[in-house]
Amino acid sequence: MNDLGVKPVVELKALTRSFEQGGERIDVLRGVDLAIRPGEIVALLGPSGSGKSTLLQAVGLLEGGFGGEIVIAGHSAEKSNSRARTALRRDHLGFVYQFHHLLPDFDALENVVLPQLVAGTPRAEAEARAQELLVALGLGHRLDHRPSQLSGGEQQRVAVARGLANKPDLVLADEPTGNLDEATSDRVLAEFLSLVRGEGSAALIATHNERLAQKMDRVVRLHEGLLA
């Protein structure tokens, strides 16, 4: 774990989020404070419906409507325009979801190459990086296979490689192994954590699984809109 004096890669200050439903106001986040430092892997623990995905959407700058402050790599999201927020997302964040959301018409290598091309990486460099990540995840023999030709665990490994492709400062993962059986889930999570640590990235990983959460550096619990 990094020294406490190191500047956080992400900092949430009094983060709030409310929704209107059936004429009623529902407070999902009620003033969340959180700081994650470089290289730190944090488990976001809470039952389904507790607001974990909402919190990840906030950190990922994926939607508006939040109160409070979100600071990513020293930049305040609230003080950034739409273009600057897109750049923050592209340059500093990586995403891994419960369902892999791979592009079905592209093979494993291409799925990991594409986000790098969007970020402006030369193709040869992007392909080398994609191959390096996929080999590290045990998929060196599956580079030219499309998602439909891969098992669930293999698909999620490709999604992990894609999330790390642009060397993000922070990886956001929403139940990244929740769609897998327990044995496959354990293997994929172990590989994911090993790769994140090897890359030196930080990670915020949402899960409802206490056993998986204990494998991370720190656990924060979302309860009634606050972090315990």
Rank of each mutant, 00 (worst) to 15 (best):
D181L: 11
V42Y: 06
L170P: 05
R90A: 11
V112W: 00
P176L: 12
L170Y: 04
A130C: 13
I26S: 10
R17G: 05
K7P: 02
V118W: 06
G31D: 08
L164K: 11
A183N: 13
G67K: 05
A35N: 02
T121L: 13
L139W: 02
L193Q: 11
S82R: 14
V28C: 12
I26K: 09
L212W: 06
S82E: 15
A119E: 07
S201C: 14
H100W: 11
L189M: 15
L55M: 12
E191Q: 15
V32Y: 11
V9F: 00
Q116P: 06
R25V: 14
Q57W: 11
D169Q: 08
T86F: 14
S53L: 13
R157Y: 10
L139R: 07
E210W: 03
E24V: 09
R146A: 09
V160H: 05
A84Q: 14
L164T: 03
L133G: 06
H208G: 09
S18I: 02
P47S: 03
A58H: 04
L12F: 10
E154G: 10
A77R: 09
L227R: 14
G65K: 11
D169G: 07
V42S: 00
Q156H: 10
V10S: 03
G225D: 04
L172N: 08
A77G: 04
G67T: 01
V71S: 13
N209P: 12
R37F: 08
T177V: 15
D186E: 15
G178M: 08
R17C: 06
H208V: 09
A136N: 11
K79W: 00
G94H: 05
A165N: 03
V112K: 02
G225S: 08
S194N: 15
V196F: 13
A130E: 04
D217R: 03
D181P: 04
R37N: 03
V28L: 12
G64K: 03
I205S: 01
V118C: 04
K13T: 15
L189R: 13
L109W: 00
R162M: 09
R211A: 14
R142D: 12
V32N: 13
E182L: 13
G5H: 05
K7Q: 11
V9A: 01
R146T: 11
